[in-house]
């Protein structure tokens, strides 16, 4: 089971990369109480049949893990959200794409801690399976609001590659500075930093 909300985000976004999407969008919106996440891709999509099965922990398409008959990503998420007062929704159309929506109740004691947002973004941007990835992060709490948004293509144009130590460190510092700037608006984090 994942220990952090960020691990779910990583996992579900990787599914979108694996679905041969040419573009994936990841939105994170945080307010006083909830972290809302939307992951939208234009990949291979799923029929309603498959979609039904996917939420069952005993399903995987059998391609990725040749000898494992269980997929873990989505059922993990659904279970965690169910146990902690959040919500989950998924829409998908074959050959059009998939959209996953979920929200986490940051005040619920059973919600996992958020985890390290900027290092999750670093991992996603540098994933070799990712084509275009657009990340938008927004915070709007009683303390104020701010946001940042970047695409993989614009970062790659500047850094040249995402595999050498020097460019990955620059990307890490860059993403950290973005998230640090939002910290002044964090609310309720103390409750869930277990």
């Amino acid at each position: 089971m994942h220990r952090y909300i960020c691990d779910f985000i990583l996992d579900i976004t990787q599914n979108s990369f694996e679905a041969k999407s040419t573009q994936v969008e990841l939105f994170l919106f945080e307010d006083d109480r909830y972290l809302k996440v939307i992951i939208k891709d234009n990949g291979k999509g799923m029929s309603s049949d498959v979609l039904e099965k996917v939420l069952d922990p005993y399903y995987t398409d059998g391609l990725k893990h040749k000898n494992r008959k269980v997929g873990l990503g989505l059922p993990f998420l659904v279970q965690s959200v169910r146990e902690s007062g959040g919500s989950f929704d998924i829409n998908s159309k074959p050959n059009e794409g998939t959209q996953v929506y979920c929200s986490f109740d940051l005040c619920n004691v059973d919600t996992p801690p958020i985890g390290d947002i900027s290092s999750t973004f670093l991992t996603l941007f540098s994933d070799p399976n990712a084509n275009e990835l657009i990340i938008r992060r927004e915070i709007n709490t009683s303390k104020g609001s701010s946001h940042y948004e970047f695409s993989k293509s614009e970062l790659l144009e500047i850094l040249g590659d995402f595999s050498t130590v020097s460019s990955l460190c620059l990307l890490r510092d860059f993403l950290q500075s973005q998230e640090e700037d939002l910290q002044q608006y964090y609310v309720n984090r103390t409750l869930i930093f277990k």
């Binding site: 089971m1 994942h2 220990r3 960020c6 691990d7 990583l10 996992d11 990787q14 694996e18 990725k64 873990l72 390290d116 290092s119 999750t120 670093l122 991992t123 540098s126 994933d127 070799p128 595999s163 050498t164 130590v165 020097s166 990955l168 460190c169 890490r172």
Partner: peptide, 30 residues
């Protein structure tokens, strides 16, 4: 991911950076 692979990626980057090792690529796989 469940076992903490993301922390490992961060640790490699910091350590390689600290030791000034730049001729190594760091990538991910499934």
């Amino acid at each position: 991911i469940a076992a903490g692979a993301k922390t490992v990626l961060d640790a490699f980057l910091s350590e390689l950076d600290a030791k000034g090792i730049t001729n190594i690529s760091v990538t991910q796989t499934g």
